[in-house]
């Protein structure tokens, strides 16, 4: 990733990347140069890139998740149905991304260097893009980055925006995510 963050840590600037601004079709772009529009003091390491987290998709976990969210399509539950449709094994629902990303986003959000006060945290917004379905038996790897920390004075809220990129065993991107969390009060 070029620009700020290439070495892992950034100088303390805020990066304005509007959630509703123009964007590439595949969302979070790890190669994009962030547009710096203003600076505020923050001790959070904007630009920090976390170690990859590998996750092995399992048939039973896919079934469990599908049941928990009410996905009844046989492709998520029935191996024979999945194979009849041309897949190697049961297909993960697209939102299964939250399961294979869980450890990666958890590490980032609980990072003491970021300093999020969990008691004041709410999940503000979420975005995902998907390139292809994943099936049981695959291994994927997720890399998180702290993309943005923005304090909104008028509402006394601090936005923490994490980016995620997940790749498959061949190194191809299978999904991306933008996780927006809001902490009430001045945060860190």
């Amino acid at each position: 990733m070029g620009g700020p963050g290439a070495a892992g840590y950034d100088r303390p600037v805020l990066v304005d990347r509007s959630l509703r601004g123009p964007r590439r079709a595949t969302g979070h772009d790890p190669g994009a140069e962030p547009r710096v529009t203003h600076a505020t003091t923050t001790t959070a390491p904007v630009g920090k890139r976390y170690d990859p987290v590998v996750y092995a998709l399992g048939r039973e976990k896919i079934r469990e998740y599908a049941r928990a969210v009410g996905e009844t399509n046989p492709l998520h539950h029935d191996v024979a149905a999945a194979r009849a449709a041309g897949h190697e094994d049961v297909v993960a629902p697209p939102m299964f991304v939250v399961v294979y990303s869980a450890e990666a986003i958890g590490t980032a959000m609980f990072d003491p260097e970021v300093g999020i006060d969990m008691a004041r945290l709410v999940h503000g917004a979420q975005e995902f893009t998907w390139d292809r379905v994943l099936v049981a038996g695959e291994e994927v790897s997720t890399v998180m980055t702290l993309d943005e920390v923005r304090h909104v004075e008028t509402a006394d809220l601090t936005y923490y925006v994490f980016g995620a990129t997940t790749t498959d065993a061949a190194g191809e991107v299978v999904s991306t995510g933008v996780w927006t969390n809001i902490v009430r009060g001045a945060g860190s």
């Binding site: 297909v91 697209p94 979420q126 379905v133 933008v178």
Partner: peptide, 19 residues
């Protein structure tokens, strides 16, 4: 589910929401 069938899981390319 609006797409339905075998194409359903792969049909979703992007989703963003505000909570």
């Amino acid at each position: 589910e609006a797409v339905g069938g075998d194409e359903a899981p792969g049909s979703l390319r992007r989703l963003e929401v505000a909570f």
